[in-house]
Design a protein around this nucleic acid. Structure first.
Length: 635
RNA sequence: GCUGAUGUAGCUCAACGGUAGAGCAGCUGAUUUGUAAUCAGCAGGUUGGGGGUUCGAUUCCCUCCAUCAGCUCCA
């Protein structure tokens, strides 16, 4: 048999050789590390004989494929442990996920933390027993017979498989499960296991189905890796915007006012003001007109826009005013279109770009609300771009550039692009959808951006490009969305007068760059862990007089900085220096200026940088220019 | 919305079927300080809201609200 390796080399092997033996023939080290193989695009267990000429890939834990198998096998071990401890529990499905694995169980009483500890201990026992994972091929009938009367979930899964499909069972010890595989050679390869938490999950994600109990966990090959992972979780917890938001007085929600309704506290509001000012300035520069529109509008408006047909479940019930229904706006588009339609437009006026920091209200299920990330009222940095067909492609490319410029300004420089296509529930002609999708695609390709396609993930009114950013912990967040919209233009009968003197239909693109100010702020907080760059910091400088004798000198400095538009305060409390420094550090104020006898005599300040410490003494004008430069560079 | 957990002072947390306690923050006073916590005193709570059981509830039960981990969905 000829076997081709990833480097292109081809070697001859005996019929029936296993991937493990092949790895062994290359090196003992490799054999020790590999977890799974891909044979002609099919994932193979390491001990599954190869019976054809093929191309082979071998995967280790560091590979996505390796991790996935490792975690999937761990989920089987978990199911096995659960079956040992709770024999009446039925197992449903248990895949590997991005970070670890889960398994869903049908059980009367949910798992407690003590149960998790017990299960974890049992899993350790199973890994010590080290039984091999054995792959068994069965017919559909055999499979059905096996699970009949035992487990309706497996029966349901099997029934959906094609008649002639190869069905496989995997057995480890006494535990047999329907499973496509592949798996690790044996349970002993799983070294470190941690069960993380439990939750409810509907069978097949459908709320009409029975609620199952899910256990999440993760496993690694070494204690160190597990510790690193847990540490990363800790780090994420420390950066949680909800925690930092409370500590720094950035934002709050209140029970008595309502869930998901955000209050921007003075420090957070100051940062928002800075973001908004920057945003407005850049939008004017980029040729946008800023507008403001109302928060409610008549039902007929939302009927025309299609929102009442396609978006009603996210809208609040109407307010009845003088016999007329008014709805809180879930989007800004109809208002922007009304402004456009209020006068006649020549092709010479286009493109028209209306931008608005528009506050919208959407009904979100109470269970999904989350800090600033998922709320019920939020402000989109919205804009609608209305242009001729000729301008379209160019405008989309400009938009991509503008988006990235904005994101970069806030310190985000890693992106992922998603192109979302026509969903099932949609309005508009298929041909329009095709054209729109193509325009977005071309824009991405012109800029050379790699992108993923989210099939059926578009909005009901058009295809879209979403940009996800990666933060300091490498987590992805959805930010920019650029959404095509052929439908509203025709629903509201938008037109412009062309060169030919006739009416034409313009194209419309709906976009939000930061997404929503609330979510974006949440991302900023977590990205910077609350240590905002100086241009964003609510307070930039804290002046700390060493004792009351230096307050007047401190005030002098404070005035000079204030006059330069630097956000500065003085700590006049009669506390020791260390106390005031600690306080300023805790508040994450970028610069502390310590002033005492020495500074007063020499007309200087002692500069301490947040998280960095003492930088030595500077004359005030030098300090001002350093700070101004830093603000200018958005560092 | 659903499953499970949680809700005690501004914050972090403790305690209990017999009307709640600490640290930090706050206030007052003393101190006048050199790069991450000076000392002392004071004040601070309808134990998330409502209802029930009980001689007595903050504790047990019900219900509502909110939060957390998920399911589902999205900016």
């Amino acid at each position: 048999m000829k076997i081709k390796f990833p480097d292109g080399s081809i070697k001859e092997y005996e019929y029936g050789i296993t991937p493990y033996q092949i790895a062994e023939s290359i090196s003992k080290g490799l054999a020790k590390e590999i977890l799974v193989a891909k044979i002609n695009n099919q994932m193979y267990d390491l001990n599954r004989p190869i019976t054809n000429d093929c191309e082979i890939f071998l995967y280790k834990f560091k590979d996505k494929e390796g991790k996935s198998v490792y975690w999937h096998s761990t989920s089987h071990i978990m199911a096995q442990a659960v079956k040992r401890l709770f024999p009446n529990v039925k197992v449903a499905i248990g895949p590997a996920i991005e970070n670890g694995f889960y398994y869903d169980f049908d059980t009367e009483k949910p798992f407690t933390d003590e149960d998790l500890m017990q299960i974890e201990a049992e899993m350790k026992k199973i890994t010590f027993e080290g039984e091999p994972f054995i792959r068994k091929q069965v017919s559909k009938q055999e499979a059905l017979d096996f699970f009949k009367d035992k487990n309706e979930y497996k029966v349901e899964l099997i029934k959906e498989l094609a008649e002639d499909e190869q069905i496989t069972f995997y057995q480890s010890g006494e535990f047999i499960d329907l499973c496509l595989g592949p798996h690790l050679p044996d349970a002993n390869m799983i070294k470190e296991i941690k069960l993380l938490h439990t939750s409810g999950a509907y069978w097949r994600g459908n709320e009409k189905n029975k609620m199952l109990h899910r256990i999440y966990g993760i496993s690694f090959q070494s204690k160190k890796e597990l510790e690193n992972y847990l540490q990363k979780l800790e780090e994420a917890k420390k950066r949680d915007h909800r925690k930092i938001g409370k500590e720094l007085g950035l934002f709050a929600t209140y029970d008595q006012i309502g869930a998901g309704l955000v209050h921007w506290l003075p420090n957070g509001a100051r940062i928002r003001d800075i973001i908004e000012n920057f945003w407005k300035k850049e939008h004017y520069k980029a040729g946008y007109e800023l507008i403001y529109t109302p928060h409610i509008g008549k039902g007929s408006l939302w009927q025309t826009s299609g929102h009442l047909d396609f978006y009603k479940e996210s809208m609040y019930p109407p307010l009845n005013i003088e016999g007329e229904d008014y709805y809180l706006k879930p989007m800004n588009c109809p208002f922007h279109i009304a402004i456009y339609n209020s006068e006649l437009h020549s092709y010479r006026d286009l493109p028209i770009k209306y931008a608005e920091l528009g506050t919208v209200y959407r009904y979100e299920l109470s269970g999904v609300l989350h800090g600033l990330m998922r709320v019920r009222g939020f402000t989109q940095d919205d804009a609608h771009l209305i242009c001729t067909p000729e301008q379209l492609q160019d405008e989309i490319i400009k938009l991509l550039d503008f988006s990235l410029y904005m994101l970069k300004s806030f310190g985000f420089d890693k992106y992922e692009f998603f192109l979302s296509t026509k969903p099932e529930k949609s309005i508009g002609k298929p041909l329009d959808w095709e054209k729109a999708t193509e325009t977005l695609k071309v824009a991405l390709e012109v800029r050379g951006f790699q992108y993923n396609i989210d099939e059926g993930g578009g909005a009901f009114y058009g295809p879209k490009i979403d940009i996800y950013i990666k933060d300091a912990l490498d987590r992805s967040w959805q930010c920019t969305t650029i959404q095509f919209d052929f439908n509203l233009a025709s629903r509201f009968n938008m037109t412009y007068i062309g060169e030919d003197g006739k009416e034409h239909r313009p194209y419309m693109v709906h976009r939000a760059l930061l997404g929503s100010l609330e979510r974006f702020f949440g991302m900023l907080i977590e990205h910077y862990a609350g240590n905002f760059p100086i241009w964003l910091a609510a307070q930039q400088v804290q002046i700390i007089p060493i004792s009351e004798h230096y307050i007047s000198y401190a005030k002098e400095i404070c005035n000079r900085l204030s006059n330069e538009n630097i956000r500065v305060k003085i700590d006049t409390r009669s506390e020791k220096l260390g106390y005031k420094i600690r306080d300023a550090e805790t508040k994450k104020i970028p610069y502390m200026l310590i002033v005492g006898e020495k500074e007063k005599a020499n007309n200087t300040v002692s500069v301490r940088r947040h998280l960095k410490g003492d930088l030595g003494s500077f004359c005030v004008s030098d300090f001002i220019s350093i700070v101004k430069k830093e603000i200018e560079n958005k560092k």
